[in-house]
Each structure stands twice: as C-alpha cells, then as structure tokens.
C-alpha cells in the first residue's frame, strides 16, 4: 500500500480565526479516506491548501514524494490531483460534453498537443467518462439546464475524465437520493479498485460507512482522530462533537 499524497502540519488562519491548525493526513493509493467533521471544521480549507487555492501559513504536502506546496492550482492539477467543489462550479453555459472534454484538455494554449489522434483519444475518454457517470444521455444539454443529480454526476465525470490518481471530493454525494447514491458509490469503488487515492468529505454516515477504508475526524481545524471506520464511529466523544451536543 503506497501513500499517494501526504500533508504535515498544514495551518491557515483567516484574520484572527485559525481555520486549520496543524493538519497531517496521508492518502494511500487504492483507498477511500473520509474526511468528516462538523460544519466549519476546516475540511474544505484543507483541500484548498493542498491544491494551492489558498496559501498555507505553515506545513508541507507532497505527491508521490515530490513536494507540491507553493505550486499553483493548475500545476497541482497537472501533477495528478483532481478535485471537486462543494458548489460544483460547472461550466454553466457549455454543454455537458464540452464540460467533460475540457477536463481532458489541460493546455491553455491555442491548441492541444498531439494532433488528430490525440484529439480522438480525448473525445473517447470524455465519452467514456460521461457513460460511467450516467450522463451520456444529456451530453448535448447545457450544464445550467441539468437537474440536481445530473449536475453532481457531471462534476464527477470531469474528475473521471481528468485521469488523476488522487481525487479530493468535497461533499459529492450531498443531496443525492438513494439510487443515485448507490450509483455514486459504485463509481468510487471502481476508481478505488484502479488504485486511485480518494479523499471524500461527506456528512452522510451511511455513505461514509459504505465507502471509507479510513476516517479522519476534523474538528475546529484539528484532526482529533484517524483510523478504522468502526473504531472512529464507536468513540462516544467524537459522536458527541459530530452530533453537536458538545459540553
């Protein structure tokens, strides 16, 4: 079991508020690590620090042993880290297909390298990602016109198409009905089987228990516990914090 991504001592404050205080995490390849914790615990901020969307006050992060702190978000992405956003951030006025194709085209220049063969390969990758995410039927619809669950799956299709080996997913299953949730879980299980290191922010404990190989419990910017799902869930202290009746 190799570690795909690690971070040590990540810290960040906003004004006077310490949102993240010395968070250390390891994401093993081929495992789902659930990042759980109450609202405002700092989960999204940890993602933003890893991807370079926010600058860390302190701490290190490395991907397959190479340091990634201080890189720009697009550089972290090219190094193989794909992320989703809590508020999705779809390309609203583009079609579903173009949203997914964009994920296969990292270059910001006038054209992509590789010529026609590579273009055909990218299109095939996008079609496969839409198929896997179950949105091939709405490929020509614009993102803004999609239903709620379709939007969530479009966000996942972009990640699939990016072919990254680390996925940082920010509440990707929130608000999904039971059957969509099952479909979502199957998607993640398939990626895990292919060796993707997945970090999943998720409030729904059913989803967490169905998917997580490990859980990191974050509260007020600190990792209070990390380990096997059963052990974490049995801890009455964590449950009290999670369900909001802390002393």
């Amino acid at each position: 079991m190799s570690i795909a991504l690690t971070c040590q001592g990540l810290a960040r404050s906003f004004g006077g508020v310490q949102a993240v205080k010395g968070v250390s995490l390891s994401l093993p390849a081929g495992q789902v690590t659930a990042l759980v914790g109450p609202n405002g615990a700092g989960k999204t901020t940890v993602f933003n620090l890893i991807t370079g969307n926010l600058r860390a006050d302190a701490g290190q992060a490395s991907l397959h042993g190479k340091p990634i702190m201080g890189l720009k978000p697009w550089q972290v992405a090219r190094a193989g880290v794909a992320r989703s956003f809590q508020d999705l951030r779809l390309f609203q006025h583009m079609t579903v297909r173009d949203n997914v194709l964009a994920a296969t085209e990292p270059s910001g220049w006038f054209w992509q390298p590789g010529g026609a063969a590579s273009r055909a390969a990218r299109l095939a990758r996008a079609e496969a990602a839409m198929e896997a995410a179950g949105i091939a039927g709405v490929a020509d619809a614009r993102a803004v016109d999609l239903a709620y669950a379709e939007r969530k799956f479009l966000s996942m299709a972009r990640i699939l198409a990016a072919e990254a080996n680390v996925w940082l997913l920010d509440e990707p299953a929130s608000g999904l009905d039971l059957s969509s949730r099952t479909r979502f879980q199957d998607l993640l299980k398939a990626a895990r089987a292919q060796g993707v290191a997945i970090c999943l922010i998720e409030h729904n404990l059913d989803v967490v228990m169905a998917l997580a190989d490990r859980i990191a419990f974050l509260d007020r910017g600190e990792v209070l516990a990390e380990g096997e799902p059963q052990a974490i869930m049995r801890d009455p202290k964590l449950a009290a914090i999670y369900f909001g009746d802390r002393k």
């Binding site: 978000p73 779809l90 390309f91 583009m94 910001g108 054209w111």
Partner: peptide
C-alpha cells in the same frame, strides 16, 4: 479546445484551473 478553455474560465475560473489549465 481554446474556445472551451475560454468558456471554462468565463464560467468558473477556479474549476478551469483545477483541470490543469
């Protein structure tokens, strides 16, 4: 692809960056 890149930047700049652009 350049049109898609610009459209992506217009609609959600941070998401475009997160795709490596």
């Amino acid at each position: 692809s350049f049109g898609r890149t610009l459209g992506a930047i217009r609609d959600a700049e941070s998401a475009a960056e997160a795709l490596g652009k």
